[in-house]
Design a protein around this nucleic acid. Structure first.
Lengths: 251, 251
DNA sequence: CAGTGGTCTAGACCACAAT
DNA sequence: TTGTGGTCTAGACCACTGA
């Protein structure tokens, strides 16, 4: 494993075990560099990754401190997650099952061509799955993926984890995603499969997911029951954002 | 301005002006280092910040490429934004107005004490504002802030931008935030102020915002009309996430 | 003032992609 | 094999905090 990742894991463990309790000032970068027998730059990279996760905060001239906890509850899933719903819920000890409602090979419409950078003659899978959490309807997913990029999808894979298949069987790596989160009115499918009443809102997540070479491989819309949790997002302001903010003295 | 930020701005301009068009391989880190008269590490930091923003993707052994565009539309606001709604909408050329519905000094309840790390005797502002976009109801904000951290708030500030006041008048800097995004059923206030019908869902954003020293200064719930856009989130998988994914061969 | 984190250098070695 | 990005070093200087 990469050196700064190893150091970050050790520090993360110390935070979780309260060896570094909330609000504690942790050792200086130089002290940690000495402890791990590495350079200060490498320690800083480890610390930066934990700042990104919201576990630490560094203050120049003062030190690095353990952050307090986020507001997310157990059912919310992270806006930073890419492992797919199966792995996310497995990590939380929940039982996720999938029922395939539609699975076919089609040609992409204009929107899908644009999102997935395809021609109208490039075939895609059209997949509709109902995901149930501990036996209760949780989310209805409408997924389109290019067959050329993700070959060999079948019903067996769909009832388990597409993301596991992509990463472990095809050996592809996921790089980034764009998501838009909205509230919406339930439609006939939501009422039928998510068992929404006419007034129950749905939480819709539209996303494009890219491989680590920048190629889009999934365009999907997921419609969630509103009472089954939300999406959590945590963000750190980068140095560039601070500089930008700094300049905005004019209004 | 910091050197890598300057370099990042130049590269960002080149992307926006299509000097580096979508999917183009940009010059190597070494070439850019020579061009800007700096070291490769500094160029890499600039590139990393643009990868974080979703503008570039680097592939080891191959090169760095301009990413294709996100799905966000103009009315969605970014999950990465901290400048407050006023600055966000000003940046988009929209006209935002604020109507103060409630403004008082109160003592925090249990939840607010926990989120803002306060005692029950530490006074907070309780603020309810209706934000209108181009004259139409947009979002209803319920905000609590510790008076001790943000002194001197008044009606004048509330009708303009609290964030501008915090940064420009108080000289404080915003560091990070945690958000949870949900769909919900409209309540009486939503129907009255957002002019929701009984069936219109609302998009609720609960957030805690921290100063750059890690101190929480805002706890708020914002309820948006569902037809006025959503929240966009873009994410890059970090090297650590990749390592984690890599190890998950077992399910 | 001393201590701390942020940035930067000028190299080096390695992993990986493309040929 | 060559070129590229990822990581790492051992120092340096600066900006900022806090005594």
């Amino acid at each position: 494993m990469i050196q700064y990742s190893k150091i970050a894991k050790v520090i993360e463990e110390r935070i979780k075990n309260h060896i570094y309790p909330p609000f504690m000032k942790i050792p200086t970068q130089q002290q940690l560099a000495d402890e791990f027998g590495t350079s200060r730059m490498t320690v800083k990279k480890a610390i930066d990754s934990l700042i990104y996760l919201g576990l630490l905060v560094s203050i120049r001239g003062s030190g690095t401190y353990v952050m307090s906890n986020p507001i997310a509850n157990e059912l919310d899933f992270s806006g930073k997650s890419y492992l797919g719903l199966s792995a996310t819920m497995q990590g939380k000890g929940r039982n996720l099952s999938s029922k395939v409602i539609a699975f076919e090979h089609v040609f992409p419409d204009n929107l899908q061509q644009k999102r997935l950078l395809l021609n109208e003659t490039d075939p895609v899978y059209r997949i509709i799955r109902l995901r149930c959490l501990d036996g209760e309807p949780y989310t209805l997913e409408y997924t389109h993926m290019p067959i050329g990029i993700i070959p060999g999808l079948n019903a067996e894979v769909l009832t388990h984890s597409i993301y596991s298949y992509i990463q472990n069987d095809l050996g592809l790596r996921i790089g980034s995603s764009y998501r838009v989160i909205r509230a919406n009115i339930p439609d006939a499918y939501d009422r039928k499969y998510l068992e929404c009443s006419d007034n129950d809102p749905v939480l819709e997540i539209e996303q494009v997911v890219y491989l680590d070479n920048g190629m889009p491989f999934e365009y999907s819309r997921s419609r969630h029951r509103y009472d089954k949790g939300g999406v959590s997002v945590n963000n750190q302001v980068t140095q560039m954002d601070k500089t930008f903010t700094w300049k905005k003295k004019d209004f």
